[in-house]
Amino acid sequence: MSLVLDVRDATKVYGAGETAVHALRGVSLQVEPGDYVAIMGASGSGKSTLMNIIGCLDVPSAGEFHLDGVDVGALDDRRQAVLRNRKIGFVFQSFNLIPRMTAVMNVELPLAYGGVRPAERRRRALAALELVGLADRVNHQPNELSGGQQQRVAIARALVNSPALLLADEPTGALDSTSTLDVLGIFDRLSAAGRTIVVITHEADVAEHAKRVVRLRDGRIIEDTRLAPVDGLPPRLKEVTA
């Protein structure tokens, strides 16, 4: 079975000489399809750098990175953009919806850049919003939505392209506990449906929802724990659906 993520001995150095910062000191991580991985670490552990590399927003200084079988390091700028568009769905801590565009327009955006026809785009965007339970909010602009609703729109936008990987960076960091549960519930259901998810977080509560927890410290993986089998259900699915 081909791996969704295959990071091999990746290092990342910012700056040079004496002021050089070693954000990653040789990280290897393989993620199989259908897995739900939480990457944990305190700030400065290198998790944001790892997330940027996994998200094709940055390339490692050394080492290799394959996303869904594609060697990302060998791609130019334009192809990396295409890869981000097709293979990755981003969910950010601060939602990062585009202001003054309605929910459905925000969700359509990746499809627009992917060259999907308007009618088809609208249909898929509405389906994705339905999936996150926002069918009644499609024509609201981000400033008319609560934080939890905005994050659900962001998840819909991340899913609309059916990406190989859903990559979430502190998805619940800016949410209250109710909205946090909503969002984690959506992730658990997506995982149960077979979606590959990588969540970067520093909250143990969030990590407990994943099937596998990877801990980073000082640019190295120090712990890799499996909470549930890859082809099984996420461990706390029952709680969130109850």
Partner: peptide
């Protein structure tokens, strides 16, 4: 700038 970043993250090519 942030909007441009979002657009790029979700796959907007430089030309767009």
């Amino acid at each position: 700038t942030r909007e441009i970043g979002i657009r790029k993250a979700i796959g907007a090519p430089r030309g767009a």
